[in-house]
């Protein structure tokens, strides 16, 4: 579905990644792991057109995404929950969710989608008039995920969904992500530092280090690989 090959990209002409490759099949949960500053976020921002690619290729359903501006991605079926959530803080939860459906023309499908999201995150329905900026981190993450789902994506990219969230809520967020994958049939790419939890439910995973893909394998396989754990993921 999504094929990234030898991708080079970065900020203002200084490459932060020098050859990242990965592949995502429809219906999968693919994890991209790596320590802080390894180039995970740069990779996915480049996929979404937020950063320009310097070289390499990004192909989505056989079509190149190089040069496609980020606001066109949702129309192609890609959606992203950015790191740090990036909500519109002075807008209500409802408006935040509706902004997610900005590119969707069919009003009926927006209503239906909204109901689905309220079912997954009932708290959002309760607090729909509250300003997004005034909510807790976990609640904000729900809004961010909800907003990213409003455009009916086929592929959802999640950048560090567990960052800055109370530990007891982290499990819940992961449950939601599983649900989105299994019940709504959305393919998922997830970036995480929390490797243990991620590998537990990822179908396939890639480890990025110093701007390059170094190891790949099924979640299960990488979980068992001691070297991976120690060297790249900093786990004991």
């Amino acid at each position: 579905m999504l094929v990234v090959k030898d991708l080079v990209s970065g900020y203002s002409k200084m490459p932060a990644i020098h050859g990242v490759s990965f592949k995502v099949e429809k219906g999968q949960v693919v994890a991209i792991l790596g320590s802080n500053g390894a180039g995970k976020t740069t990779t996915l921002k480049t996929v979404m057109g937020v950063l320009p690619a310097m070289s390499g290729s990004i192909t989505y359903k056989g079509e190149s995404l190089i040069g496609v501006p980020s606001h066109k991605m949702v129309q192609k079926g890609l959606s992203m929950v950015p790191e740090g959530r990036h909500l519109f803080p002075k807008m209500s939860i409802y408006d935040n969710l509706m902004m997610g459906a900005y590119s969707v023309k069919d009003k009926g499908s927006i209503e239906k989608k909204l109901e689905t999201i309220y079912e997954i995150f009932p708290i959002l329905a309760e607090r729909k008039a509250q300003l997004a900026g005034t909510m807790s981190g976990g609640e904000q993450q729900m809004v961010a995920i909800g907003r990213a789902l409003m455009c009916n994506p086929e592929l959802l990219i999640l950048d560090e969904p567990s960052l800055g969230i109370m530990p007891k809520l982290v499990d819940e967020i992961f449950e939601f992500i599983k649900k989105i994958n299994k019940e709504m049939g959305v393919t998922i790419v997830i970036i995480e530092q929390n490797a243990e939890k991620t590998l537990a439910f990822a179908d396939y995973a890639y480890v990025i280090s110093e701007g390059q893909t170094v190891i790949e394998g099924t979640g299960e396989a990488l979980m068992k690989d001691d070297q991976v754990q120690k060297v790249y993921l900093g786990m004991d």
Binding site: G49, V50, P69, H71, P82, H86, F88, M99, Y102, S103
Partner: peptide, 19 residues
Amino acid sequence: KAIRATSQDKEAAGLVGIN
């Protein structure tokens, strides 16, 4: 709303499909 969204968070505005 798109203008407000852009003013509050430009990156997120782009990601939800706002030019």
